[in-house]
Design a protein around this nucleic acid. Structure first.
Lengths: 354, 354
DNA sequence: CAATAGCGAAAAATCGATTTATCGGTTAGT
DNA sequence: ACTAACCGATAAATCGATTTTTCGCTATTG
């Protein structure tokens, strides 16, 4: 019979009301903490709620309210540790405030990004956390602006005149990487970057370049940019190293996939880090500290970014005005074994394993 | 002024109705494709929709419908490639059918798992895709059963008498690993597993053990199980290798974190794969093919699992009866460089890098 | 003692859709 | 010619809550 009851539809606020011998309005008031209810009645409502196992239907509840308690999150992908952690954090923070997070992946496509945004607009979400595919000037942000949505932009973004932004302080982190590499004696570095994500990657590149040139005016900085996909990068890197030109003593990759591709290219050529070449990557991952050598990386402050994004988003949702703020969170740079001084050991010709 | 319009509230079905000079019911019918509407009126409705930029409010729509078009997904975590891809796939599949996916992470906690499930029940989701923290017999599945929710269990699950299940064929994959290792001459293997996730991990362990013993009755199989967290595993592994007993020639980790921890332990001791010890892990990751050595791994068919889970879930949502089915999807085993024949090169004492 | 204020709770309106019942106006059937 | 069936469309009920309005009753006050 318990089974049979389970199949029944869930009790509504009216069921509770009739069980407690009061009206639905009274039930709603008790549950939302309005104090103008006679204690005796309040208790009867609470008892009925307990007895029936009643829970408010958030859908019906949001229906009547002005603002719905749903937050939308749009990430370029879910597969990487960075965005995975980000969604996890955002979900927790939304839940803490009684909101539900609806997450969707734009799969690195601006078109999909806009479609998802339109769907979220249909849901009349209270706010959106958008990690744009490219930067703050894409069609998605334009859509949000045009439709008067409230939101915050994170990650691949520097500053915007319509929305608050929260991202890692790429420039400062890159400067630190530059200081470390130059300090170790590197005078020829290859930087691997993505062309499309203009703002952030440019900041990472410029942050590195400025500090490096400042400390060592004679340094040579090569740059390989790929447009969006990873596959072409593989070819680009292969070409770069095949040109027969002088081999750089270090590679600084401005994004995770670039680090993977660089490592893969080193494998193919039989180069070892850090003796044959040093490697630092933007974005940390769990595996980087257990491989041999451990890969040096810039760790983005996921928790801080998520926390600030939600903080500022809820302020806007609650109606705070004022011009949009651009926030930068500091990164940590972990110099692991993949980085060393150049020339301390002669380059191995490649091929000799172990 | 376009800006001002954007700030206004969105048009409702009644706005469209009055613009088209018909009733709201007619608008609803046109939009849901009912054919009993005079073509002329249908066109006027369509025009009004176009003009006002009207879109159905899914919240209000779901309110009236019997089944709401929301699917819940609960994963133990979002940080790993496996579950990241899984959520991504599920999200796409739900979207294809006009459903919205609400994803939440149980953070490896059964208590949280149940809370999330309760919240999803509040939302009256049409169905749930649950990847349980432990196995199909946890409190979460019990909750779903008790409340008559429709759902499908995936990943850490073998079969259930109340819900359909879809998971990787761990046993078969483990048997293949056993064949490979035994074939290469390994006669002493350490298996690293998680104790809590009874069903799946036991299947992986038994699949390995049975085939290994069948092919080489003299094989020695050690097992290190940790209860749930990873930190204790680190200590357990350290103890195991410190006991001074004979070192196994290969390690087979039944889950990703175990592979990471094993690698980490090898690092500490200065052992190299595959000369000092071979390593195979359940669960593949992108980095495993670019590190040196590349790590051998069992690749779970994420896309197939997600596809089948959604397939079977929607069948149940549409009211299909019959006993629950347990589905196993075959894995691929990638034997990379971390695996070799034992004794082909003498063990290095450790410490000598590169 | 009548008028007013105050209190707690019920009744009714509302949110934005879908679905059912109803209703003129034809057309067909007997 | 009178009823039945049908068609297209509208009015009304519904989903499950919240919010506003109304209402009955008691307590205060001039």
């Amino acid at each position: 019979m318990a089974q049979k009851e389970a199949q029944q539809r869930r009790p509504s606020i009216h069921d509770v009301a009739s069980h407690a011998g009061v009206s639905a309005a009274t039930v709603s008031k008790v549950l939302s903490g309005v104090t103008t209810v006679k204690p005796e009645n309040a208790q009867r409502v609470l008892d009925a709620v307990e007895m029936l196992g009643y829970r408010v239907d958030p859908l019906a509840s949001d229906m009547r309210r002005a603002k719905r308690r749903i937050i939308g999150a749009i990430m370029p992908e879910f597969e990487s540790e960075f965005f995975g952690q980000m969604v996890s954090e955002l979900e927790g923070l939304a839940e803490q405030r009684g909101y539900t997070l609806v997450a969707a992946s734009s799969r690195e496509s601006e078109a999909r990004e806009k479609e998802i945004l339109a769907r979220m607009h249909d849901w009349r979400v209270a706010g959106v956390v958008l990690a744009p595919v490219r930067n703050e000037h894409g069609p998605a942000a334009a859509f949000m602006k045009a439709n008067g949505m409230t939101g915050v932009l994170i990650d691949r973004v520097l500053a915007d005149d319509a929305f608050d932004t929260v991202s890692a302080d790429s420039a400062a982190a890159s400067a630190e990487v530059a200081r470390a590499l130059v300090g170790m004696g590197h005078r020829h570095v290859l930087v691997v970057g993505l062309g499309q994500q203009a703002a952030t990657v440019r900041a990472r590149l410029e942050g590195f370049r400025r500090t490096a040139l400042e400390l060592a005016p004679d340094i040579r900085i090569d740059v390989v940019l790929c447009e969006s996909d990873v596959e072409p990068l593989r070819a680009l890197l292969h070409d770069y190293f095949s040109k027969g030109a002088e081999r750089p003593t270090a590679v600084y990759s401005l994004f995770l996939k670039g680090t993977l591709v660089a490592l893969s290219e080193f494998r193919r050529r039989g180069w070892h880090c850090p003796n044959d070449i040093s490697l630092v990557g933007f974005d940390d991952a769990e595996w980087m500290q257990v491989t041999w050598p451990a890969i040096a990386a810039v760790v983005q402050p996921v928790r801080e970014i998520a926390g600030n994004a939600m903080e500022v988003l809820f302020r806007r949702i609650e109606g705070e005005g004022g011009p949009p703020r651009a926030r930068l969170e500091p990164c940590k740079v972990l110099m692991r074994e993949s980085v060393g001084s150049p020339g301390s050991v002669p380059h191995s010709g490649g091929g000799d394993r172990q």
